[in-house]
């Protein structure tokens, strides 16, 4: 029972082969096995959003997914999005607007905000709040986070125009 099983997946574009216990969730695999500690573990039951990653382009809770369920998928973490510059403007806006204090929620916030910002239209504040509603922040009171996401959406729209 519950013997290790092989798993192959892409993480930030790099092929990874591993042998994992079925019970190992994806968040712990990223953090413990791959030392990608940007993905944070908060509640471990899908409520806080700190563990948000992208699988095949869609955001998911990595604490609610087994590593073996990621077999054959392409996983992107905050490290990937930071290193390739995809969210450099969003990160700058967070810094500028002080949209973080302790930083625990920030990787998940950035992943979720970028999921919204990928759409070409400029979201209103209500839409931003709605999209981020599954990500908890206990420091900022959210105003600054919504400001930073809104400012990034406007700047990207200006650049496209």
């Amino acid at each position: 029972m519950s013997a290790p099983v092989p798993v192959s997946l892409l993480v930030n574009g790099e092929p990874i082969d591993g042998l994992v216990l079925p019970r190992l969730n994806l968040a712990d695999f990223l953090r413990e096995n791959l030392k990608l500690t940007g993905t944070h573990v908060g509640c471990e039951h899908g409520v806080c959003g700190a563990c948000t990653v992208r699988i095949d382009g869609e955001i998911v809770r990595s604490c609610l997914m087994l590593t073996i369920q990621a077999q054959g998928t392409s996983v992107e973490t905050i490290e990937g999005l930071s290193d390739n510059g995809e969210i450099a403007d969003l990160q700058a806006a967070f810094r500028e607007r002080n949209a973080l204090q302790c930083g625990y929620c920030t990787p998940g916030m950035l992943m979720t905000a970028q999921d919204l910002l990928k759409h070409p239209s400029v979201p209103d504040r209500q839409t931003i709040r709605e999209h981020l509603s599954g990500n908890y922040c206990r420091c900022t009171g959210y105003q600054a986070i919504v400001d930073a996401v809104e400012a990034t959406a406007r700047k990207r729209a200006e650049r496209r125009a």
């Binding site: 029972m1 079925p22 969730n25 471990e44 039951h45 899908g46 809770r61 604490c63 609610l64 997914m65 087994l66 073996i68 369920q69």
Partner: peptide, 25 residues
């Protein structure tokens, strides 16, 4: 196990501990 969005929280909270998961995903 399909999407796991109710099953995984229940297992992480140890409200459920099945011997085996049958993944139909």
């Amino acid at each position: 196990l399909s999407g796991g969005q109710s099953l995984m929280p229940a297992m992480n909270l140890r409200l459920l501990s099945p011997d085996i998961l049958v993944d139909i995903g």
